[in-house]
């Protein structure tokens, strides 16, 4: 037996530990909840999120699966249709492509296509994003793709608090929900009020208030935006940071309210720029807050290439705090 991961204080922990506590709470509170996925049991989870759960809950509820993404995601859909509350883990978003048919053609389609006879209360968790030097096939950010699909809820917990409590909201939703956990966040520590029991999964959140520019982002780019905001404050630029939290349905109001205050906006998205969630956010601002803007909308996205292995290339590919700072500076004090 591996030693349990140390919990620093009751309300301070890593993102990984928060995700695990959320799963444990779900398993304890509802006998219909079970976990299914690759290496979630004996191995303890590819990112060690599920470590220890097999010992506590047994093989029936912590189900190791073969490398059959389409089959076990489809099995998740079927169990959800027949009375269970499955939480399916797909190791990374890259492998979810092998299950896309089950997600799109079954999970999100059957409720509507059956005239409302079936709901699919299915939660799918997957790791996403780059930064770990594991090359293109393990580094994609396809959250925006999934956010294209009506019927799905797409959650991107970027803080320890959200890692701890978003799952509860996802399980309360009678519809398929995908939770994207950015790989660079698992070791991040954070805290939350000790009396906290839940979070609202419907709203974006102002993570840092500011007057001069809105940095709108989500997931693994949140901490980069916050770093950029700190750097900008030393230059006298007061940036507001919005964490979208839920990419579908988008909380347009929080976005528009922020832009109406700051009148300038940079959207930071680890997805590729073309056809991305950043494009959607930008277009909503253009549709609903065009006359509030004092400057053109700007974006910091991943470069339009497969994420390369070499460190200098990968870093150049992904949004970075320094790039955000440079774009903000240019937007506010054009040379």
């Amino acid at each position: 037996m591996n030693a349990p991961e140390p919990t620093l204080t009751p309300n301070r922990m890593t993102y990984r530990e928060a995700s695990k506590q959320a799963l444990r709470e779900a398993l304890l509170s509802d006998p219909r909840v079970f976990l299914m996925g690759e290496d979630i049991g004996r191995y303890g989870g590819c990112y060690a999120v599920t470590k220890g759960l097999l010992e506590e809950f047994g093989e029936e509820r912590i189900r190791d699966t073969p490398l059959s993404e389409s089959a076990f995601v489809g099995a998740g859909v079927g169990t959800a249709m027949a009375g269970m509350r499955p939480i399916v883990e797909i190791m990374t978003v890259n492998f979810s492509l092998l299950a896309l048919d089950q997600i799109l053609n079954n999970a999100v389609t059957i409720p509507h296509m059956s005239g409302g006879q079936f709901a699919i209360p299915l939660v799918i968790r997957m790791a996403t994003g780059g930064g770990r030097r594991v090359a293109a096939q393990h580094s994609r950010s396809l959250e925006g793709w999934y956010a294209h699909i009506p019927g799905l809820r797409v959650l991107t917990p970027a803080t320890v608090e959200d890692a701890r409590f978003m799952l509860k909201g996802a399980l309360a939703d009678p519809n398929p929900v995908i939770i994207f956990e950015h790989v660079m966040l698992y070791n991040m520590e954070g805290d939350f009020p000790s009396d906290m029991k839940e979070v609202d999964i419907a709203r974006a959140k102002v993570r840092r208030a500011g007057r001069d520019v809105s940095l709108i982002t989500y997931g693994g780019s949140l901490f980069k935006a916050l770093q950029a905001a700190d750097a900008l404050s030393s230059e006298g630029i007061d940036a507001e940071v919005i964490d979208l939290r839920t990419l579908r349905p988008l909380d347009t109001k929080t976005i528009i309210d922020s832009v109406a205050r700051t009148r300038r906006c940079i959207i930071i998205d680890e997805g590729w720029r073309s056809g991305s969630i950043s494009a959607e956010v930008g277009m909503r601002i253009a549709e609903e807050a065009f006359f509030e803007l004092d400057a053109p909308l700007r974006r910091v996205c991943s470069r339009e290439a497969p994420i390369p292995y070499a460190a200098h290339l990968e870093d150049a590919c992904l949004p970075q705090a320094a790039t955000i700072v440079a774009v903000a500076r240019e937007l506010i004090r054009p040379s």
Binding site: F34, E60, S70, A71, F72, V73, G74, A75, G76, V77, G78, T79, A80, M81, A82, G83, M84, P86, D101, Q102, N105, N106, I110, M113, S114, G115, Q117, F118
Partner: peptide, 30 residues
Amino acid sequence: FDRKRRFYGGNAIVGGGLPLALGVALADKM
């Protein structure tokens, strides 16, 4: 689809229904 008769749908993706069968059977078993 007919929920009352446990008729879990005609599926127009060839092979797309097979994983659903796993799930329905697993849910019944569990």
